[in-house]
Amino acid sequence: MSQLLHKAKDFVSDKIGDVVKPEASVTDVDFKRVTMDSAEYLAKVCVQNPYSTPIPICEVNYSFKSANREIASGTIPDPGSLKAKDRTMVDVPVKVPYSILMSLARDIGADWDIDYQLDLGLIIDLPVIGNFTIPLSQKGQLKLPKPF
């Protein structure tokens, strides 16, 4: 009985491994707006759905890092669905408190920008397979809004 279960597990793993899965990429991370206590940025993620049916996005997890430390993180529950056989843009807002930005003053320097790394986990619900996470990572520089 154990051998039969092991063979069935291997068969299913092989078949699922060959299934075409949605692909995603971070297309842009840019300044959005300033509030009284934070700077808000917007990451745009493009997701290609190869299936002829829409796929629900369960949630998006993000971690925004600078100078080797996490400065913002969060979860966006139920951000919508991926269009069938099409590309879907998913917006991921990132809110960074000024208190944390000011503690990064050494990195900001004279050019008033910060080096960042954005790590995302896009969790989608694939038929038969179940929840599937598309991991993404983007590095770059962001300009900070100039003080008044």
Rank of each mutant, 00 (worst) to 15 (best):
L136D: 03
T88F: 06
E70R: 14
I134S: 07
S137F: 04
D78Q: 09
V128L: 08
E59I: 10
L126G: 04
S73H: 11
G130E: 09
T75M: 13
I123V: 15
V90L: 14
L122R: 01
D86M: 09
L118G: 04
D111P: 04
L104Q: 13
A110Q: 13
I57N: 00
K95G: 03
L120K: 04
I108R: 12
V94N: 01
K139M: 07
A72G: 06
T133S: 15
D111C: 09
D91C: 07
A110I: 11
P56W: 01
N131K: 11
V96A: 04
R106Q: 12
V96R: 05
I134L: 15
S63K: 14
D111K: 15
R87E: 15
A110W: 07
D119W: 07
I129G: 00
L142G: 06
R69H: 10
A72Y: 10
S103I: 00
V96N: 01
S73R: 12
P56A: 03
A84T: 00
I55Y: 08
K95L: 10
A110C: 06
A67H: 12
D78I: 00
D125I: 01
G74R: 11
I123Q: 10
N61P: 00
I124H: 01
S81H: 03
K95V: 15
V128C: 00
P56L: 02
D86V: 02
A84P: 00
S66L: 11
I57S: 05
S103L: 07
Q141E: 10
F64T: 05
Q141K: 15
G109F: 11
K95N: 13
S66G: 13
V92G: 03
V128G: 00
V60M: 14
I123A: 09
V94R: 04
L82P: 05
Q117D: 06
A110N: 13
A84W: 02
I55E: 08
M89Y: 11
E70V: 15
G121L: 11
I134M: 10
D111R: 14
V94K: 01
D111W: 14
D86F: 05
D91A: 13
P127G: 04
I100N: 00
G74S: 13
T75D: 10
S63C: 14
L142N: 00
I129K: 02
P54E: 05
K83D: 09
E59N: 15
S63R: 12
L136H: 07
L104S: 08
N131L: 08
D91M: 03
N61A: 08
N61L: 09
D125A: 04
N131E: 12
R69V: 09
Q117G: 03
S63M: 12
G109E: 11
L118F: 07
K65P: 00
D119R: 12
F132E: 09
G130A: 08
S99K: 12
P77A: 10
N131C: 02
N61S: 13
T133C: 14
P79H: 07
